[in-house]
Simulated assay, not measured.
Amino acid sequence: MALTAEKLKENFAKEGKTLAQWARDNGYKPRDVWLVVGGQNKARYGRGHEIAVKLGLK
């Protein structure tokens, strides 16, 4: 089952991590990750989809 954006943010907060750091560690731009998590990028294909899958959103 896929995570919701809110649950994902909670998990990051519990672990003391930031989405920006996760983005850099995984070779993505922080802005691209925020667009996916925030819903502005629907993540249907391409890099956005790849980010959503790695984060567990899809």
Rank of each mutant, 00 (worst) to 15 (best):
R47P: 06
G46T: 00
V53A: 13
I51H: 00
Q40S: 14
T4Q: 02
P30M: 04
K29S: 15
K29P: 03
Y28M: 09
K54E: 15
R24A: 09
V33R: 02
G16Y: 05
A5N: 09
E50Y: 04
V37H: 03
G48F: 06
Y28P: 05
G48T: 09
V53N: 04
K14A: 13
K29T: 15
L57D: 09
P30I: 08
K17I: 12
E10F: 07
I51Y: 00
R44K: 12
W34S: 13
A5I: 14
A43V: 12
T18W: 01
Y28D: 11
L8Y: 10
K58Q: 09
K29E: 15
A43N: 01
M1A: 13
M1E: 14
N41C: 04
E6S: 07
A43T: 07
P30K: 09
V33L: 05
L8P: 12
A43I: 08
N41F: 01
A13H: 06
R47Q: 15
D25A: 05
W34A: 12
V37L: 06
L55Y: 03
P30S: 09
F12P: 02
Q40K: 11
Y28I: 10
D32G: 04
A13G: 03
N26K: 09
W34Q: 12
W34P: 05
K14F: 09
W22T: 15
A23F: 02
D32F: 02
A20W: 00
G46L: 00
H49M: 14
F12W: 00
R44N: 14
K17Y: 06
N26Y: 05
E50F: 00
L57M: 14
L8V: 14
V37M: 10
L35K: 10
F12G: 01
L19P: 05
F12T: 02
T18E: 14
K29N: 14
F12Y: 11
G48W: 07
I51F: 01
G38R: 01
V36M: 02
L19C: 00
G56K: 00
R44W: 05
G48K: 10
R24C: 01
Q21S: 11
R44Q: 13
D25E: 15
G46R: 00
D25R: 06
L35T: 15
A43H: 00
G38W: 01
V37S: 12
E10D: 13
L8A: 13
A52W: 08
N41H: 05
W22S: 10
W34K: 10
K9C: 09
K7C: 01
Y28V: 08
G16T: 11
V36H: 00
G16D: 11
E10I: 12
G46W: 00
A52S: 14
A2Y: 04
L3V: 07
